[in-house]
């Protein structure tokens, strides 16, 4: 299924409606009932003026505390790894296996040298650490692919397990923040932002809140 939209809000709401209407229910490892669709693609086109609007909406609920945009951005940009987290995206992007800066030492020089390259991919998933049967705290985000077309930087994020209600607004914002970092270095504009979710799901115990969001 592909959802393509000019605005983030309409893309998000379409995705939420699509899962509610077409998803299949299952019970996950934590005994929570999920509704899921497989292989959902959501693409939003520039200029991304409303990129943090879903976060703002989730922040307006008194029921929970949603992380701030600073905290969400920090997670993908910061190279510092807090010892109390089992993983963090920033260190895996900028210091993979304590040795590879995938953005500054690969993506940027590669796209500078070959703007049409199809090799501009970074990986978050580390089989040495994550491909273990009993390990449960593993990244949801798997890889990010950059491609320049019509002098614009397009980015696609691949997510293995994606809570479209709580997670996707943060994920797309992180993709925007990272794309902004790369595009500034490449001196080009940001094009489309796409997420590809292997398991796009919603938790059934959040349906009331989701309906509330859909009404907004």
């Amino acid at each position: 299924m592909e959802i393509k939209s000019e605005t983030l809000m309409s893309a998000w709401k379409s995705a939420l409606r699509h899962i509610i209407d077409s998803g299949r229910d299952f019970t996950d490892e934590n005994n929570r009932i999920c509704r899921e669709v497989l292989n959902l693609l959501i693409e939003i086109k520039p200029p991304h003026n409303d990129i943090s609007s879903a976060i703002s909406l989730l922040n307006s609920f008194n029921k929970w505390i949603y992380p701030s945009t600073e905290e969400i951005a920090d997670l993908i940009i910061s190279r510092k790894m807090s010892p109390t987290y089992s993983y963090s995206y920033g260190p895996r992007i900028f210091n993979f296996c304590s040795s590879v800066n995938q953005i500054d030492d690969f993506i940027i020089p590669l796209l500078r040298k070959s703007p049409f390259s199809r090799r501009a991919i970074i990986t978050i998933w580390n089989p040495h650490e994550d491909s273990k049967v009993y390990k449960r705290e593993v990244p949801g985000l798997i890889s990010i692919y950059f491609k320049i077309t019509k002098k614009k930087l397009n980015a696609t994020m691949s997510v293995r397990s994606n809570d479209i209600f709580f997670g996707w607004p943060a994920n797309i914002y992180q993709l925007f923040v990272l794309s902004e970092y790369v595009s500034k270095k490449l001196n080009c504009e940001i094009g489309s932002l796409t997420t590809f979710s292997n398991s796009a799901h919603l938790f059934k115990d959040q349906f009331e809140d989701i309906k509330q969001v859909l009404k907004e």
């Binding site: 029921k63 929970w64 505390i65 992380p67 997670l75 993908i76 705290e137 709580f166 997670g167 959040q206």
Partner: peptide, 17 residues
């Protein structure tokens, strides 16, 4: 229920908390 929501939110944002 609040704790579970927070864990879900932070985990789904990439911060397993």
């Amino acid at each position: 229920s609040f704790c579970l929501s927070e864990e879900t939110i932070y985990k789904s944002c990439g911060m397993p908390t």
